[in-house]
Computed example of a mutant assay.
Amino acid sequence: MQYNYLGKTGIKVSRLCFGALTIGPLQSNLPVKEGAGIIRRALDAGVNFIDTAELYQTYPHIREAIRGRSGETVITTKCYAYTREGMEKSLSTALKALGRDYIDIFLLHEQESELTIRGHWEAVERLLEAKEKGVVRALGISTHSVRGVRAAAAVPEFDVIHPLVNITGIGIQDGTVEDMAAAIAEAGRAGKGIYGMKALGGGNLISDTRQAFDFVLSLPGLAAVAVGMRTAAEVDYNVAVFNGLTPDSRVQRLVNVQSRRLHIEDWCRGCGQCVERCGSGALFLDGDRARVNPELCRLCGYCGSVCPEFCIKII
């Protein structure tokens, strides 16, 4: 497994990062022991980097996966807190749920621009205090926008940026994939540690997995790429590709036959909360129920977190 340093943080991470969203309630909803087993399979293969968030509800899976393991496991988490008190609560929750006395990387979740960063500055100040005390090793933002990457690159206090990037530009809120690649390169030159997300477009690019991975792995400035994994076959396939190897033919078949889509149950009553939550504009109301434009959907599953009827899932 190849390892890189995240910018100037001094944190060394595997180029393949385990994206924990897919094992949690918003997507596959794996039981804790089963999800922990998938994570451990990746850790045993040399992956030392896990990406999660308060929203994903996967802290128990990660805690179980790293229990009793020797060696460093780098964990990133994120939250939407914008006040000092909110960040204090999120930080405390993460430490307790993960069973740790520090968080490697703590990010402001889904920042769009310099304006949203400014609106979250109280939370940033709390993270800076935590960093001074060694409770947080590095901080920054996750973002689906080119403007967000460029804004974060200009903030001296930020160490890490976690941008959305893939070969077709699925999910980028503003600009093109070329714009995003240029912003990532600029941020890398500014010394920021950068690791990408949604290399497979949330699952939309599974049929062209190898080409999609080759693209992100060729981008200057990306120290690592977070990839959602929910099966042993996906772990084995991704580890092989990130190691520069050709995956076993059986594993390739298992991965290539998988497809994913956003499913909305018939009992949807059209309250519109998912439409408001969707950051990619993929959801819309059609009469008395919500529907999805699959060409815009990045299959993040965040819409499911606000559905009062629990009728949205990734299948």
Rank of each mutant, 00 (worst) to 15 (best):
A240G: 04
D208K: 12
V241C: 00
N256L: 10
I172F: 05
G148H: 06
S218G: 11
D159C: 12
A183T: 14
K131M: 15
D248N: 03
D214R: 14
D208A: 13
T168F: 10
G228R: 01
G169L: 09
G228Y: 01
N166Q: 09
F215G: 05
F215Q: 04
V227R: 00
I170R: 04
C268N: 05
P220S: 08
S142N: 02
P220L: 08
K192E: 13
E157C: 12
Q173H: 11
R137Q: 12
P247L: 03
S142Q: 03
V255R: 00
L254Q: 06
G193F: 09
E132Y: 12
M180G: 13
A153S: 06
C268K: 06
K198M: 13
Y237L: 02
T143D: 00
V255W: 00
D179Q: 10
L219H: 06
M197P: 11
E178T: 14
A187V: 14
T231M: 01
G221D: 06
L128W: 09
I194E: 06
I167N: 00
A183D: 15
L254G: 07
L164G: 04
A223F: 01
L127N: 12
R189I: 13
I184E: 05
L219N: 06
Q211L: 13
D248S: 04
A212E: 11
V257G: 03
G193P: 14
G228M: 02
